[in-house]
Design a protein around this nucleic acid. Sequence first.
RNA 1: GCGAGAGUGGCGAAACUGGCAGACGCACCAGACUUAGGAUCUGGCGCCGCAAGGCAUAGGGGUUCGAGUCCCCUCUCUCGCACCA
Length: 836
Amino acid sequence: MTDIASPLPAGELPAGYDPAVIERKWQARWVAEGTNTPDLANGANPYYALMMFPYPSAEGLHVGNLFAFTGNDIYGRFHRLQGHTVFEPFGFDAFGIHSENFAIKVGVHPSELIPRNIDNFRRQVQRTGLMVDWTHELSTTDPSYYKWTQWVFLQLYKQGLAYKKKAAVNWCPFDKTVLANEQVVGGACERCGTMVEQRFLEQWFFRITDYAGRLLANLDHLDWADTTKTAQRNWIGKSEGAEILFVVQDLMEFAGSATAEAGMSGEVAVTNTEIRVFTTRPDTIYGATYLVLSPEHPLVGAVTTDDQRDDVEAYVATAAKQDLVTRKTSREKTGVFSGGYATNPATGEPVPVWIADYVLMEYGTGAIMAVPGHDERDHEFAKKYDLPIVAVVAPASGALVDVQAEAFTESDGCRLINSGRFNGLTVDEAKSAIVTELSVRHAAVPVVNYRLHDWCISRQRYWGPPIPIVYCDACGTVPVPEDQLPVLLPVLEDFRPDDSGVSPLARAEEWYHTTCPQCGAKARRETDVSDTFLDSSWYFLRYPSTGFNDIPFDPAITRKWLPVTSYIGGNEHAVLHLLYARFVTMVLRDAGLIDFEEPFTRFRAHGMIVREGAKMSKSKGNVVNPDEYIEEWGADAFRTYLMFLGPYEEGGDFRDKGISGVKRFLDRLWRSVHDARSDGEPDAAVKRKLHQTIKKVGEDIPKLSYNTAVAAMMEYMNTMRSGERTPHVDEVRPLVQLVSPFAPHIAEELWSVLGNTKGVFDSGWPTYEHALTVEDHVTMAVQVGGKTRGTITVAKGVTQEQAMAAAMAEPGIAKFVTGEPKKVIFVPGRMLNIVV
RNA sequence: GCGAGAGUGGCGAAACUGGCAGACGCACCAGACUUAGGAUCUGGCGCCGCAAGGCAUAGGGGUUCGAGUCCCCUCUCUCGCACCA
């Protein structure tokens, strides 16, 4: 804890600027006058300044939240000053496992807990003076909101984009419950430490993979931070390759089981067991010395010989017991030989078929051709099990590489060797040549794969919107009709997950047993709730339309306000949230419900705040409590300090003492306005600095370069007050406007002190005259042989000769110039370099 | 391992398309005004050196009249993904 919280004794408060008083005053006035409530229907020049809505935790607002919100608020206020109608809404992402777990821990029902947390958050946010339109507040837990979340589900269902399939979940055999991935630590249950297993449950998925290509392609045209775009590209993970059939030799008595996989190539008569593999390197097929099937692959049984059957079954059983996390993170490769062989279609040689869990059933075809000479994973496996390693690609130089020691994975400019008639082709040439060659007899086809998986939205939990589906014995899966929404989340006193393996909602008897909307017969409700990411995938559509109860979003308002003009949030959501929101928006657009397919025109991610160089955490006890700082220094100083810490997109280091510098700046601003003289003229040099500052701040804010904008205003303050001079009122007035996005309360107060009756945020942004930003004299650096030896102050626009003369007149410079200069480099207005 | 980003004074940080490195602020030092000071104001403040000057942007090389900025290599840190064939 810090000692700065000790208050001043009463009676010693500095006279004048008292943040507590004026902040309360202006916050009340903004509410009373509706200052922050724009006319959404008629406002000119709409500007939708959106920030990611928070999860309302019990601890209250984190300083990181405030850093994010303030950055967005400055942006919004700045655009308002530029003449836009700015809509800055606020809401709460209050469903989800986080709330539920906390509720379980403290033994209070989330429906009671969440409104309390929301009230606390709202109070804290209001104290910081954000330009939020509270008349459009929303919470994802409100039935009037999640009614439409369920509606979004139904739109996807109608489009055939929602489907059910069995999928693995983490299962704790001790607690007998489903665990979310974040509850699994090192393969064990975070609560009891028992090793987690995987279980297969029927779950709802969205076909986001159908949109992978569009989600990827659109990134090229979005005004988003490059790091975010790269993260999305990597996540979507496009990879181009080919699928190729390998025929299993020496078929035994179960030949019939294989035909199911046929069908891709119409021309091939499939009579034997065939394994379809996916590879991005068809050029290396001559080096494919074995095949690997994932343990879950349907052909595992078909390729296994009787003598290997016990080993294979044991291996598959072990793999099935492993939890999802361990399976995907352990690097030690294991596998078992099936006993079967397939024919390498290029070499005609038999290659053994192995079963190994380093091949994932979810990706590609669940089977690979292993090329240990040119793939690190295959190499590691081949070494461990003593499988042959062959080099089939050589570097451009033609040098021989020792693939026995290490896989050679480069491909740029490399050429094929040991590959029959394909020898000498480049990797790129060989890729298409080999696929073409194998297309007829081995059904080779070019295939694009994405590592993006379909989005599993089922959660076997309580605290979320019920998925609006009913199961009827006669009609099967029936969507709840839209006019029967919302499917209300029943109040369950005991909402803990149990050992049934299904959601706690199954225990809400009256709710669970219902009638079929189609035939009226007895039916059961879906008991899973949906993922929180579904709640947040469309909230930006709801904000402007929160007043409409019968529709999710009003067409006219939506046309006017969307897509979102500017979105600011944390990089931790760079992938999932932003991708899901883009996906849902595309689906709604394809359904003809909206007329744009990208929700966020511009996105920027803010950085992270650390404290005294260390990450903030509850256990370290170093978390900044915004209430304490606002109490002590005022919201204006706190906001401005947060913005001054460092570059907004990189974050900054919160140092307890640092805020005093910003507070001093605001104190001086206060005094400057109160003491300003109105007689006489503003000083010419100050005026020039003013115009430079207006230019700089106006350029920095759109770049989110808030720290340098604040620095520029401080510089101006220093110029204006240097030598204890009393500033002229014309010198101070524009500064109040420049400061207003950062410190809105003091700006409003001082603006009214200056005699204005309209609020500062409707006063417009000060303009600058270009001519006044330019200095008439410039200080140029003079280098001799590249080393700076001094400066000269000359009139702007001097010639090289004049600059030379001025430089040689300086003894400190001239003494370094020995003899005739060999060369002179002159950059007008910047520097002069005399090379001797 | 792969991907992204970053390394500049005691500290947080500035530096436009290569052109005076350290703006602005914290801390610190000296001074003014003070009964007093987390008040205000003035001046100083990268390192070495009395100075002239030299050395400095993680380390090493390179391109250039000139490099924090561009190129190559090495090291360190942060974040994300984790066997995606």
